[in-house]
Design a protein around this nucleic acid. Structure first.
Lengths: 299, 299
DNA sequence: TTGAAATCATAAGCAATGCGAATAGTATTG
DNA sequence: CAATACTATTCGCATTGCTTATGATTTCAA
């Protein structure tokens, strides 16, 4: 906490002079030399244009104008105190909280461990996570409704800084009964003609996959289009078809044996995941620490 | 009237920044260069310890702390305005008024012409006169309930300045039917054995007269003691006895032929009349003018 | 009244601040 | 992607503000 009464030092000084009826005592209270106090008061009188102190008596008295001014000073100092108290409250309530906007897939797979590590470092802190569609994540960060945004296939925008997080390996997702389920590896050519659960064509990852398949000279049979990984996983698990998904996002379903993940011989097919934040935005301690944690997990 | 908002210039500046959402416009409103405004705000932020402006957008926005501070500034500026208005009122109401405390005898004989002259010079001014016992006159001046005091036989006190006004000739006061009434002059010895209306022994003038009579080897027959001139004049007019009074204080009764004043052959017997005021006290324009008028009437 | 103690005012030197002009940097607009 | 408008920075200079030392005034006690 920084020192108090730095905003209206003259007010506090005059209030103290009025209260103690002594320039030297008021000077002490304000950590000033006595001549400094004398000079400040004279300066005040010059600015206001009237005498504030009646120096013909000891202890010094207040002129009628001085009384009025002392009232003003009392009020102003009280308001300054209130302000500083409220400010401290704001600061305290924000210093330990980080607001995160994330796309569903990253939020669902990463927030668990991230929150755990965060709480170890900031036991009193808060990690507020909101899961949104990609575009809404950008929006939230740009409009300062979130401090950090978790997205895949980061788009550059002038006001945003992009911090690469990881590149997720993409693998073939299939239901346990599928013929691919026992394969060690799958070649792009193996996909030819397979029933495929795909992303909507608006989603970036769909365009990436389309490009990959085209370049591999493979055509798949798209039997269903969905706009999010969660739904695709469900469709695949039900036997609707196979898909290509970031392996990391399937860990839970794999453990539960509802899905299997088979490596795809296409090391270049990776989903980049990144953290974004407003370039100019200063993060609080907690935010910086969270970023630190994320950047360490890159290596 | 001096310029406005000289007490909390930073507050007004920030309030204007918050309102106009522009540093340069706020700078203009406060008659500052744009760089100066930028610097002042930065200085404010340094003092408060938090960012107040969000400079990542145009127009500049307020951070949450900035909003809080803007509220404080608005209130403070409003209070400053109120203060200055009240101050102007005080100033205006006091600049033209002079508060006078006077003993009865001087007040009754002098205030008429004095007020007339004063009003010619200060048509809008006020001359507030309070008639008091001598000791109360000193009190009123010392405690700043009066700007000027009119007294006789001035007593020196450390905090008071004494300005001699005039020395009033003392004459014999008699009722028109008294044997003295036709005399051209009266010698001290003529007073021997006369019925005399005297001052109370506490009044200074009584001691002065006692001394005079003693030194003249005269004894009078004190038939009544009163503590003020007014009552003595009435008693004399009723025929209770004669007295010795400042001639000036009898002018009205002489014109009305209720009293006669006969010169007394005692030129040294004079009542000094003076104006007093607190040494340190600064008089306003009207007060200075009144003093001027009084001092001119000395010569 | 006088002398001592307390208190406020003034002086001088130095450091810090505040300002404007010029310039650089950045955001918005068409 | 310029053009425009606004904010930030730099620099030099003047002003302000502070401290120490000293002076002046008031109060208090003898």
């Amino acid at each position: 906490m920084l020192e108090w009464h730095l905003i209206f030092p003259d007010c506090k000084l005059f209030r103290d002079v009025a209260h103690t009826k002594s320039l030297s005592k008021a000077a002490q209270l304000n950590k000033l030399s006595q001549p400094a106090a004398t000079q400040r008061i004279h300066e005040l009188e010059r600015r206001v244009g009237v005498d504030l102190l009646d120096r013909s008596t000891r202890p010094v008295g207040l002129t009628p104008s001085g009384k009025l001014f002392a009232g003003l000073c009392r009020d102003v100092v009280r308001m300054e105190d209130d302000f500083l108290a409220q400010l401290a409250e704001i600061q305290h309530s924000t210093e330990g909280t980080v607001r995160i906007a994330s796309i569903y897939s990253i939020g669902l797979t990463e927030m668990g461990s991230l929150r755990e590590k965060f709480q170890r470092l900031h036991p009193d802190g808060h990690l507020h996570t909101e899961l949104l569609r990609p575009e809404k994540v950008y929006e939230a960060v740009l409009e300062d409704r979130a401090d950090l945004g978790f997205i895949s296939y980061p788009e550059h925008r002038r006001e945003l800084a992009i911090i690469p997080w990881r590149e997720e390996r993409m693998t073939v997702a299939a239901y346990p009964e599928h013929p691919f389920a026992d394969r060690e590896i799958i070649l792009p050519s193996d996909l030819q003609g397979q029933d495929f659960v795909a992303f909507d064509s608006e989603v970036i990852i769909r365009r990436e996959l389309d490009k990959f398949l085209r370049e591999s000279g493979v055509e798949v049979e798209i039997v269903m289009s969905l706009d999010n990984i969660q739904s695709i996983k469900e469709a695949v698990a039900k036997g609707t078809g196979i898909s290509i998904l970031p392996e990391r996002t399937m860990r839970e379903e794999i453990s539960a044996r509802r899905l299997v993940s088979i490596p795809l011989d296409a090391p270049e097919l990776r989903r980049p995941v990144a953290v974004i934040h407003r370039r100019k935005k200063k993060l609080n301690r907690a935010g910086l620490d969270l970023l630190e944690m994320i950047q360490q997990s890159v290596g």
